[in-house]
């Protein structure tokens, strides 16, 4: 069974077509990257996968649950992290984790918070207000919140945005290890091509709401004759592949 099945997914705002007939599947335990420029439809797609946004057309199944009719059953087994969604700044890290532990009905919550804090190097920060943390510390807290319910599907929207290279690498290493240990399915939207190349089994290249290419990072590099995904991204964003093919003829 696939963890995520998307068919004909479309979102239209009036005359603007934000997402245009996306169809893809993510096998259990795989990591899928969503790549695309600003306005390509990544965030809209993630919002629809989370039930935050009702699609204009199409269907989404997460862990066998239809998001149109049974989204709460799926949400219980998913979680989400984004640097653009905050946690209450005045509450301590422990209080924030406790809130989400209750919302996700996590058993033995205090034990779970302690274990996550130890894993993510947050133990010293549990009593600190979330608003007083550095960007790197906030990212680790956001990850702890996203993992509080041991999600089977994890949606990450630019998880290392605004982090220094060292902290970004720490997060990526941690995600790799977590996926290997838990078998969690991850959907990752990112502008960091090195991150996508390192973490993702499969990549969807989005442009103007459509999938313009897909494949493993290795397959995409080979197909475009490039050494890194950043060049592939620019080829797609600027239609350079067609221009190169034209120049070659």
């Amino acid at each position: 069974m696939n963890a995520i099945d998307v068919a004909g997914l479309t979102k239209r705002y009036g005359s603007i077509l934000a997402v245009d007939g996306l169809a893809f599947s993510v096998p259990m335990g795989a990591t899928l990257g969503l790549l695309g420029g600003n306005g390509a439809g990544k965030t809209t797609t993630i919002a629809m996968l989370l039930g935050l946004l009702i699609p204009t057309a199409g269907s989404i199944q997460v862990l066998g649950h239809d998001m149109a009719s049974d989204r709460f059953a799926a949400l219980q087994r998913m979680n989400f992290s984004s640097p653009y969604v905050s946690l209450p700044a005045r509450l301590t890290v422990a209080e924030n984790l406790r809130i989400y532990g209750h919302l996700y009905d996590v058993p033995r919550l205090e034990h779970r918070i302690g274990a996550l804090a130890a894993e993510l190097d947050l133990t010293e920060l549990l009593g600190r207000p979330a608003g007083q943390l550095s960007a790197g510390q906030k990212t680790r807290v956001a990850l702890a919140k996203a993992l509080i319910n041991r999600p089977e599907v994890l949606l990450l929207d630019e998880p290392t945005a605004s982090l220094d290279p060292d902290t970004g690498d720490w997060v990526r290493t941690w995600l790799e290890r977590y996926r290997a240990e838990s078998g969690c399915t991850i959907l990752l939207a990112s502008h960091n091509m090195a991150e996508v190349e390192r973490l993702c089994d499969d990549v969807l290249m989005l442009k103007q709401g459509r999938i313009v290419d897909r494949g493993s990072p290795t397959a995409l590099l080979g197909r475009y004759g490039r050494d890194d995904l950043e060049e592939v991204f620019l080829d797609i964003a600027r239609d350079r592949r067609a221009a190169r093919a034209e120049a070659a003829t």
Binding site: G51, N79, Y100
Partner: peptide
């Protein structure tokens, strides 16, 4: 509005909270 001011609604609405 406290949830709006703390920019926390995104997390609340994607939790299983009905």
């Amino acid at each position: 509005m406290e949830e709006i001011w703390s920019r926390n609604l995104g997390h609340v609405f994607v939790s299983p909270l009905r």
